[in-house]
Write a protein that binds this DNA or RNA. Structure first.
Length: 135
DNA sequence: GCCAACGTTGGC
DNA sequence: GCCAACGTTGGC
């Protein structure tokens, strides 16, 4: 069964265009237990929304997991892991956080309930709802 | 740029 | 092992 996720990045640091340029990106530098646990559950083929935090505050595209957890190459402690992702497609219309907050069907969305969580699960229903908003 | 939320660290 | 201090994230 395909699982759905949402991952945040500041576009200044690493944005959608950077992922496109790289063709396959390494999602590293996640140093938060909850976010890391979510990354450990990811399987190849899982679908992931790419959200721009700080600047943009919107979901800009869809990517998919291309490699499951491996040790974060930039982490000296050995505690943290990374995954690899490939771009699937850019959304026709970016979906702003503001609109998601206004949508009652998305009231339980993990990133709304817990702002600072940078890697969060998305249910199949929420996934469909957000896709509909991007149409 | 500010500050609330929240995770981590370190002194006791 | 507790909890105050500190650091980081991310919406505003």
């Amino acid at each position: 069964m395909t699982q759905y996720w949402l991952m945040k990045s500041e576009p200044d640091e690493y944005g959608w265009d950077d992922l496109i340029a790289e063709k396959e990106g390494t999602w590293d530098g996640v140093k938060n237990a909850q976010a890391s646990n979510n990354m450990k559950k990811m399987k190849v083929g899982d679908q992931v929304f790419f959200y721009h935090s700080r600047q943009g505050l919107e979901i800009v595209g869809i990517m998919e997991v291309s490699e499951e957890q491996f040790p974060d190459p930039f982490d000296d402690t050995g505690r943290w892991i990374a995954v690899k992702v490939k771009p699937v497609r850019k959304l026709n219309k970016a979906v702003p956080l503001k609109e998601m907050k206004q949508n009652p069907k998305l009231a339980n969305l993990a990133i709304i309930r817990q702002t600072r969580l940078s890697v969060a699960p998305v249910t199949a229903d929420e996934w469909e709802e957000i896709l509909a908003m991007a149409a």
